[in-house]
Design a protein around this nucleic acid. Structure first.
Lengths: 338, 338
DNA sequence: TTGTAAGCGTTATCAT
DNA sequence: ATGATAACGCTTACAA
């Protein structure tokens, strides 16, 4: 570990370059026409030499733009927030904007602390990532900077939101199954209290209805776990509805479904085609067979949220802008074979 | 979205309270003895009223402490970095320190940009989280603030590091298997280029050696995937070494192992006890059976890294401090039955 | 083209 | 107990 030498300031640069601080400032900021080529070059050289790094805090006190944003989340696993963060970095540019990641852990008090801290740090804006796709309480009235809600919409219609489309996700899977010629489609979902669960059902059934079809059995609700997937699959397959396709409510559920269905002697996808929601790599890519699943494109959500935030910063966007990121079906062997 | 009213400053508070800015400052910072009870109360009330939030940037310009740290990582999934971040938040206190999360995505140039930005933003310190437990290049010489390396150690012996103990992890699993009475223990590992793979083998074999035992077959190396786990398990079980326990190199590998072993008609754990490394919930908790696995305690790593960083900030720690977080075996039904 | 001076919001020092 | 003043590092009128 090296000595933490006193930081070199613009004054130091100016001094050793033999100019005034203001000239140095202009030189480094490339104020063309306000400084001679020669001086500019010399100052830049000295700055480089001395290892000068501008103090962003001091800069921010003028521009009233800190180049920082807060990303506030409750998502302990980082399943959503990290891809969203990365998407936001993409849009902002890693060199222009830095992101404070704050995890509220589902505790409103903790969230309040984070909010206060972020306001105090003068972040330019906030991205609030919900833990589940249901709407969540607005925080916009509590902070003096623009807020964009990502993944989960805000309860307040005046807020900016970038969300997924669970209905569409359901449609995608159903269309896929129909295209494969499946007609006896079942659905094993998760916790019915999640709006996502309801909306996916809605998407599935609406597509089926267009083809004068219905789910072969009532959708089964339970929890978002493998255990439930296994149990429900057994119930389903032992029932007397014909089944040639099962849509799992999440990748975890689907892993359970696949295990049970295979254990009961059915072939996937020949006898039973299977598809799912989430497209979470550790569950989906290594399965036997790998699982067809809907990707909600979190990274794209992050990009769009960042873009919306940028616009909001320039007041270049109307109140209550809502964007929806189209989900995408990723087809693997659990539905189409090799 | 509400009007972004001009931020209220300390001057505003002071003015409406009828005192000078410096008095207001003292009042709000509770400088006891330097301000009368009455004034203090009045100023505080006004501040509350006006919704005053101190400008942390301006504050930082005096204290030379910003209350921010950078967490720089390459871990796209957040598998390590998020728990570590949360641990760090625990130690620092969410209300006193905010964390910039920066993902280098394995690209040194991107990492450099982030570093430069963080230096510019005057972060008090840096936590560098490696993507894999092998040592990684030091960045300490490039920044003027203390750095702690978490999960992966730095190549430079003078750096502060908080790491896992993969040898110990191997020992834990091996001891567990021996305690269960298993004597024919096999190991299906991942990519041999990872030091973690080698060290876990080392831990396992050293414990066996203490009991005058050896692995029942040479450890099998491949990749960190379920697919490899399945393939290797088949090879292993079709070989002519007796096997009553298999240690998987990671939870993904182990999922594959379990699937194959069950498919071949063995009971887990009665015929074959299985254990693993990572204790990654989505893979481990919902399995059939749930998987015994070593937890590397990332959150604790984060706490310790933050603590070390705090000490380093006060120069209260010697150069090249190394801390090792003891891993922990989490026992589930894949090894002990019900 | 360059330098001087003021100011961003806060705190610390020193008078009063 | 309170307030005037300087200072933190930088930018930007404005003056030279």
């Amino acid at each position: 570990m090296e000595i933490h030498r006193k930081r070199v300031t613009l004054r130091d640069v100016a001094a050793t370059a033999g100019v005034s601080p203001s000239t140095a400032s202009k030189a480094l900021n490339g104020r063309r026409g306000q400084v001679s080529e020669a001086t500019q070059a010399r100052v830049r050289h000295v700055a480089e030499d001395l290892g000068f790094t501008p103090n962003a805090l001091a800069q921010a006190m003028h521009t009233t733009r800190t180049g920082t944003v807060g990303l506030i989340t409750d998502d302990l696993e980082g399943r959503f927030s990290l891809p969203i963060l990365m998407g936001a970095e993409d849009t902002f540019g890693a060199d222009r904007t830095s992101v404070f990641l704050c995890d509220g852990r589902g505790d409103p008090i903790r969230e309040s602390h984070h909010l206060r801290a972020l306001v105090s740090r003068q972040v330019d804006g906030l991205i609030v990532v919900g833990a589940r796709p249901d709407t969540r309480p607005s925080v916009s009235h509590r902070v003096p900077m623009p807020v964009v809600y990502a993944y989960a919409a805000s309860e307040d219609d005046n807020d900016h939101c970038v969300t997924t489309d669970n209905v569409r996700a359901g449609e995608l899977v159903a269309e896929h199954m129909l295209a494969l010629g499946r007609r006896n489609i079942a659905h094993i979902s998760g916790d019915p209290a999640y709006s996502a669960a309801q909306e996916r059902v809605e998407g599935i059934t609406s597509v089926l209805a267009e083809h004068n079809l219905n789910l072969t059995a009532r959708p089964l609700f339970g929890s978002w776990t493998e255990t439930w997937g296994r149990a429900a699959a057994r119930v389903l397959m032992e029932g007397d509805h014909p089944v040639d396709a099962i849509i799992g409510g999440s990748d975890r559920i689907t892993r359970g479904i696949i295990e049970t269905v295979k254990a009961m002697g059915y072939r996937i996808p020949e006898d039973i085609a299977v598809a799912s929601f989430d497209n979470w790599d550790p569950l989906v890519s290594g399965g036997q067979p790998p699982v067809t699943s809907v990707d909600f494109r979190f990274k794209e959500i992050g990009r769009r949220a960042a873009r919306l935030l940028s616009l909001a910063l320039d007041s270049a966007v109307p109140e209550g802008s809502r964007e929806v990121v189209e989900p995408q079906l990723v087809i693997r062997e659990s539905s189409v074979g090799l």
